[in-house]
Design a protein around this nucleic acid. Structure first.
Lengths: 280, 280
DNA sequence: CCATCTTTGTGCACGCGTTCACAAACGCAT
DNA sequence: ATGCGTTTGTGAACGCGTGCACAAAGATGG
């Protein structure tokens, strides 16, 4: 998880200890809390007082047992026979995620994506305040983006220190990402959201999360190809495929591994996915 | 993680069967193939002929054992004592991911984010071709974005059919996402990349992947808060903590139970109200 | 107060993913 | 040929996450 996920490299040696330590919410649960929060907020705006695990799970697109287990890590916030108090749960999750406080962030690299992020309403509405937009291009300095003036990266360190910024968003070209990252960390940032397609190396204690737009598409392409291949194979159902092939056949041309690979993928994909029914 | 994580809901009941059956690459491995591909492409551009699992793993930001196991699902493409042939591996992974063919995609919702995606170079360079940019706002129709004219969503069905588009990207406001999704699916799209903060419901056989920009930040905030809290606790090391607490003691750290919840949640909720009208 | 119904909270089992550790395989020098 | 150093490929163990299924707990009605 996806996970994917999504963390760049998440060995986290203390993870085991974390759970045993009274508190300590599994990463998978933390990753779902924002989903629940969104669903709950929607219910809250419709003035729905309580919600059952079944309903909320449907709204968040997850399994109800999973949802209950997730909430059990936060504490016993439900009432048996009734469900969960929406307002109370919104508050508890917000607090657990740290959204009851203000998080100043800096966005470095005001290209198309930086633009989009600066204008993204989902940030401000959840306690994330854009402390500054930074770009190395002096030509952009002073230009207003989402109501904020773009400032030069020379000011990075000062801004981070005076505004106590602990979260940085990198939307620079890949070549500049590591350097920007190093400066952010040196100035005091301890969490980085990286949109540049680069592996960042950071010292211990600094969290990096990566969002790569093209990776998601590539994963979709994989499944798409598999679907198409399954249909083809269902139609023709060719010969008994290539021999198990000991490592003997060295990859020579570009051609020989191909049919062996394409032959046995199995046709499970078609019947796949039975859930994912209603949600809203 | 991530999803990570990142699939909308990915239980995949047939996963076990898939693996056992000859081919069938684990989802976690598929999600990492693009990382390897990127690292390999960089090596290829530097004309590096071969690379060891250790080196490549470092470049991709993963563990070398994991990388070797991932590659073992593709076949035996390495040479013991030497490493992997870069060019050959680039081809094999590209083929496995389906990047050796052309994937036309449509982007629906040409706001800030749609703009950014249309300009994103990572797509075109990997076999993804933007077949059309679509928006429901007639005011945008004809306007050039990334060299392509924005077209009205009325043309969606025709474009999808004539260009055989199977992948759609949704960057609309959340309110329009489900409707757009339904139309995409009805017209023949079977893979959807959703940037709108909504749970989409789709029929069987359609893949949905979700990218939520604010969720990543919220996860970072959680860890950030934990770091701060740990420091605090390490410093003061307060009383033996709260009692194991039967369900009795509602957490009244702020004020008192639900009332506190309501008021605080109210504060949080107010700030959140306008919610994401962005993105679109 | 008791019975019944609803829904939570969780013990348990299972499967996927990760990591370790090592034998097999290969190149190369002698 | 033979031996040595290197690196792959994978068997096996382990831990995390998921989902089932049910007992406990509260609500509700009589």
């Amino acid at each position: 998880m996806a996970t994917g996920r999504s963390t760049q490299s998440n060995p986290n040696p203390a993870a085991g200890a974390r759970r045993s330590r009274g508190r300590g919410i599994p990463d998978a649960t933390v990753a779902r809390l924002p989903l629940y929060l969104r669903a709950l907020t929607a219910l809250s705006e419709r003035s729905v007082p309580t919600v059952s695990s079944e309903e909320l799970a449907a709204a968040a697109g997850v399994n109800s047992a999973k949802l209950r287990k997730d909430f059990s890590y936060l504490g016993s916030y439900g009432t048996r026979g009734v469900g969960y108090d929406v307002e109370y749960l919104v508050y508890q999750i917000s607090r657990e995620l740290g959204l009851t406080q203000d998080w100043p962030v800096v966005i470095v690299g005001i290209g198309n994506l930086g633009h989009a992020l600066a204008n993204y309403g989902g940030f401000a509405s959840r306690g994330f305040r854009v402390a500054a937009l930074l770009d190395a291009d002096s030509g952009l300095t002073g230009q207003l983006v989402a109501g904020l003036p773009v400032r030069h990266t020379d000011e990075m360190e000062e801004i981070i220190r005076t505004d106590r910024v602990s979260i940085g968003v990198i939307t620079t070209p890949p070549g500049a990402a590591q350097q920007v990252c190093d400066r952010l960390v040196a100035a005091g940032v301890t969490s980085i959201l990286n949109f540049a397609p680069t592996v960042l190396s950071v010292p211990d204690g600094v969290d990096v999360r990566k969002v790569d737009l093209s990776i998601e598409l590539q994963i979709l392409a994989f499944h798409e190809q598999r679907k198409a291949g399954d249909e083809l194979r269902d139609a023709e159902e060719e010969a008994p495929a290539a021999p198990p092939a000991a490592v003997v056949s060295r990859p020579e041309g570009v051609a020989d591994g191909v049919e062996a690979a394409a032959s046995s993928a199995g046709r499970v994909g078609v019947a796949r996915q039975k859930f994912e029914e209603a949600a809203g």
